[in-house]
Design a binder for these strands. Structure first.
Lengths: 180, 180
DNA sequence: GGTCCCATGTAACAAGTTACATGATTCC
DNA sequence: GGAATCATGTAACTTGTTACATGGGACC
């Protein structure tokens, strides 16, 4: 999965591992938290598969870097992945915990949902700020059509966070009702 | 993660691997898709850690089964997990694909979102049916308070699917707008 | 002198996926 | 005779996590 994300980014521009990580942090972080160690590992794997090609570049005042570019095979692989259906494998750690919350008291659980709500309200603010920098990203992606899909992922994230806040409210209300 | 789910179930009732798998399929499947091979592997690991204890039971007309029960150490571990904050590690494969959809044509992408919408409409129906069997589950869980949290997970799932459908509509509308 | 940026990784472990493998009984 | 239910797993692989490890240059 991360593999195809990296392929997708390299299809836009040549990059080194560090830049890929930065891009994840800036643009994809709201739906994908990439680990440094995994990115470098995947880059090696992708190069071994022939999907990308790296070459060392010397810099002055900065460490050497390994720049990667996508190969024709890589572009084929990317296109195939994009055309394949996403089979949703559901896995929501939060709900696993919620399912077993019956072991704790009503008050503890009200506190649980309040905390969750607060965390999501902070995330909601981050999305509002992301919105305001969309123009910046449109430039960076150098393509209006492409930046549209970045916008779709942001809008999904915003909806999801908003939905989670509403759900917390409903859970809190139900718990308070139970308390009576 | 699955580890704690199993611990949680065994805290409700003694079960064998097969029953755990069935329970996942019936009650937790909308947020956690458990693999057979992983469940059996985790059971072995949990027993080795001393969190659960298994014993073989002979049956007639059916294969022998290994029944597991939670130990005191297991209960401590479960309580600790329940009290710990869930640090949200975001990872949405669907959005990874959407982010790179700029490589495909508008028409292909409209088709993509229509298909996704249709799949989620089917899932929505499944939630409506799940609702109607909530009474059945209340009995099964033998505890109204506990079944409340099962209800919370269902309501989250329903909201999420509904949200996804709305998001698809918005994406389709935006793509059609672009086409003009 | 300390922190941030740039830049690369390794090692060990934990968790999830896919395919394979077996076998009795019951119901149609 | 075939499918479904009950029941248990192994093996190989892929993916993700956590901690460790290094080091120069810029800026305050």
């Amino acid at each position: 999965m991360l593999k195809h994300g990296i392929l997708g980014l390299l299809n836009y521009n040549d990059m080194n591992g560090y830049e890929i990580l930065e891009t994840f942090r800036h643009s994809l972080n709201h739906f994908w938290n990439a680990q440094k160690s995994q990115v470098y590992r995947e880059l090696t794997a992708l190069e071994n598969s022939g999907y990308i090609q790296g070459s060392w570049v010397e810099q002055d005042g900065k460490p050497d870097k390994k720049m990667y570019s996508i190969t024709d095979e890589g572009r084929v692989e990317l296109a195939q992945w994009l055309s394949k259906d996403e089979k949703e494998s559901v896995r929501t750690p939060l709900l696993m915990k919620v399912f077993f919350l019956g072991e704790k008291s009503i008050d503890e659980n009200i506190a649980f949902f309040m905390k969750l709500k607060a965390a999501n309200e902070i995330r909601y603010q981050a999305f509002v700020e992301a919105d305001q920098s969309q123009d910046y990203y449109s430039d960076e992606l150098q393509d209006l059509y492409r930046s549209m899909f970045w916008g779709f992922t942001i809008s999904y994230g915003r909806k999801r966070v908003k939905m989670t806040i509403e759900w917390c409210d409903e859970c809190i209300a139900a718990l308070k009702e139970q308390k009576k």
